[in-house]
């Protein structure tokens, strides 16, 4: 069952340099690398199309300079795209007036930044309440909401601290609280954990998944870390040189990379980490003894200990809990050690 599309972005270009719009028209909307270089124009985003569906975690993955940050800024219209079309819940984002845009951002969008972007002169509480302050919400209401958010991100007791008194991980928790305080539908996270130590990063990823299971937002998540992308994503768009190379689920990306670049990236990813039970199971369900049921959406790596420890195979269930196949330890171990070619 397809979920409704919240953000629909088609053929978005972002060029930097002189007279970019004319330039693009002159080249019928798709200039070559040569033409770009000749005109002294830098292309940050080239012909990017993505559809982001309600409730999914959509990860945009790319190395630095791949245009992922620019793309997310186009999606939130922090940066004005040179060409293309972006629809938010059906209405044309690029045609919106300044006031409509402000309204949209106040009510429907939230964003978390790589370097936290907290206001140094405000306390944790005031930072978290800032979006409501800007909207003119009275102090008592906004501080109450901000306190709730601070509680959700686990910073209770530090409301009166200033950002400089907090660790990086704590600061980003404040950034998350701020981005969620106005209860947005669409949540942008621009490399939110890249500036953190590896251990803290892991912890924050878990925290993020916990929050998402609670809040069910539609999420656009930017990262340069492929492991992070695989851990968090429902779908991933891999970017290189301003272009989207491939958009797919983590599993598809690893199994069927559509370009050499994506393949290069996914080559060293352990299959078991991305392969779901539903894609490695056998579809027959012979009568017999089973050790239990496992959801088809869980990965092999996730369930291998359970499967291996049991003396009998497991039934695999679908979205509605119906049985769709079975898996035994042998198959699972094959995937783990890479014996199957699949």
């Amino acid at each position: 069952m397809e979920r409704p599309v919240i953000l629909d972005c088609r053929g978005v270009w972002k060029l930097y340099g002189p007279h970019t719009r004319n330039f693009l028209e002159k080249h019928n909307g798709s200039p070559t690398d040569m033409a770009l270089a000749e005109a002294n124009i830098i292309s940050a985003v080239r012909d990017a199309s993505v559809k982001i569906r309600k409730g999914e975690i959509f990860v945009i993955m790319g190395l630095s300079g791949s245009g992922k940050s620019t793309l997310v800024r186009c999606l939130s219209r922090l940066v004005e795209p040179t060409a293309g079309e972006i629809r938010f819940e059906g209405s044309d984002l690029l045609a919106m007036s300044e006031n409509e845009l402000i309204h949209l951002r106040r009510k429907k969008m939230g964003m978390v930044f790589q370097h936290f972007a907290l206001l140094p002169h405000l306390t944790v509480l005031q930072n978290a309440a800032f979006p409501l302050d800007v909207q003119g919400v009275d102090r008592r209401t906004r501080e109450e909401k901000a306190r709730q958010m601070i509680d959700i991100v686990g910073l209770t007791g530090r409301e009166d601290y200033y950002p400089r008194q907090l660790s990086g991980g704590q600061q980003q928790r404040v950034g998350i609280a701020r981005s969620l305080v106005a209860d947005p539908d669409l949540w942008f996270l621009d490399e939110p954990f890249s500036a953190l130590d590896p251990l803290i990063r892991r912890e924050m990823q878990d925290e993020f998944l916990r929050l998402q299971s609670m809040l069910q937002k539609t999420i656009v998540f930017i990262t340069h870390d492929f492991d992070e992308a695989i851990r968090l994503a429902d779908r991933i768009a891999v970017m290189k040189g301003g272009r989207i190379e491939q958009t797919a689920t983590p599993e598809e990306l690893v199994l069927n990379p559509s370009t050499p670049y994506v393949e290069e990236f996914t080559r060293h990813v352990p299959r078991a980490k991305v392969m779901k039970l539903r894609s490695v199971m056998s579809p027959d369900v012979p009568d017999g003894v089973y050790a239990g049921e496992l959801s088809g959406n869980r990965t092999v790596a996730d369930t291998i200990h359970q499967i291996d420890a049991a003396t009998h195979p497991f039934k695999v269930t679908g979205e509605e809990g119906e049985v769709i196949g079975t898996i035994d330890a042998r198959t699972a171990i094959d995937v783990m050690i890479g014996r199957t070619g699949a």
Partner: peptide, 23 residues
């Protein structure tokens, strides 16, 4: 990023100047 944060929470021009930039 701080300016973008201000814009993303929906600051008007004046709010951006007096509540974000100047402080």
């Amino acid at each position: 990023e701080v300016i973008e944060a201000g814009r993303m929470v929906g600051c008007r021009r004046g709010q951006l100047m007096w509540k974000v930039l100047i402080p």
